[in-house]
């Protein structure tokens, strides 16, 4: 006997993501899903962001790792509320994991919630977690052809941060080629060049994030 099902496989995930989004709306949080390969600089970017916003914008962080709480320990030094999710085997954060972190944060006291996904260029892009936008980091040591190999993440992201530009002289990374490849996948992608180590370009990221937060607050006010 054949039974028609017609159910979206991600239905359960997306339902939870929508519920989280409603919680974020109520608390007026801008929520950014930050994704990259392992070692591209997500945690360092969060540290630079914490320094730039200290005393001005209230940040919160949810960080996902397969094992250990090292990332959370690095961020806690900045007196920011952090929840560490240890995914054990999962290669990404899904809506359920992020929802489980929310009771551990006072969202009414947070302006921007940064969700540091598990280091991986494939899977995190598949799972909505209730975010307003996705931001990805590509470091120059990974190669300029990555957008062609991992199209989904480039397609899903609003902003691409090309990190470790201080290392450019030591790599064969072609910046023009990388940008052209990324724009082929997503013509609306914003792109910025940054070094989280030297601080070069960080101000661009900070003003982008601030602008997003302002837009979010305004759209919630008019809603």
């Amino acid at each position: 006997m054949k039974v028609n099902v017609m159910v979206d496989v991600m239905e359960a995930n997306d339902r939870i993501a929508t519920a989280s989004k409603e919680i974020f709306d109520r608390n007026k949080n801008l929520v950014v899903n930050l994704m990259s390969s392992p070692g591209a600089g997500k945690t360092t970017l969060l540290e630079r962001t914490a320094e730039a916003f200290a005393g001005k914008v209230r940040l919160g962080v949810i960080t996902g790792d397969i094992e250990t709480s090292r990332d959370a320990e690095r961020i806690e030094k900045y007196n920011i509320p952090v929840v560490q999710l240890t995914t054990v085997t999962a290669c990404h954060l899904d809506a359920n994991m992020v929802a489980s972190a929310l009771p551990h944060l006072d969202l009414s006291q947070i302006d921007i919630l940064l969700i540091e996904n598990v280091g991986n260029l494939v899977c995190p892009a598949e799972f909505k977690v209730g975010e307003d936008c996705k931001v990805m980091i590509l470091s120059v040591t990974e190669g300029d052809e990555k957008p062609l190999k991992y199209p989904l993440m480039f397609r899903e992201s609003s902003l691409l941060i090309i990190n470790k530009i201080d290392l450019l002289p030591f790599t064969n990374f072609n910046m023009d080629e990388a940008k052209a490849n990324a724009l082929k996948m997503n013509p609306n992608l914003g792109i910025m060049e940054v070094s989280t180590t030297t601080g070069q370009g960080i101000e661009d990221w900070i003003s982008w994030l601030k602008q997003c937060w302002q837009n979010r607050v305004e759209s919630l006010r008019s809603a």
Partner: peptide, 8 residues
């Protein structure tokens, strides 16, 4: 990404 049908 959808389940269309099943045979049971």
């Amino acid at each position: 990404l959808r389940i269309k049908d099943i045979e049971v």
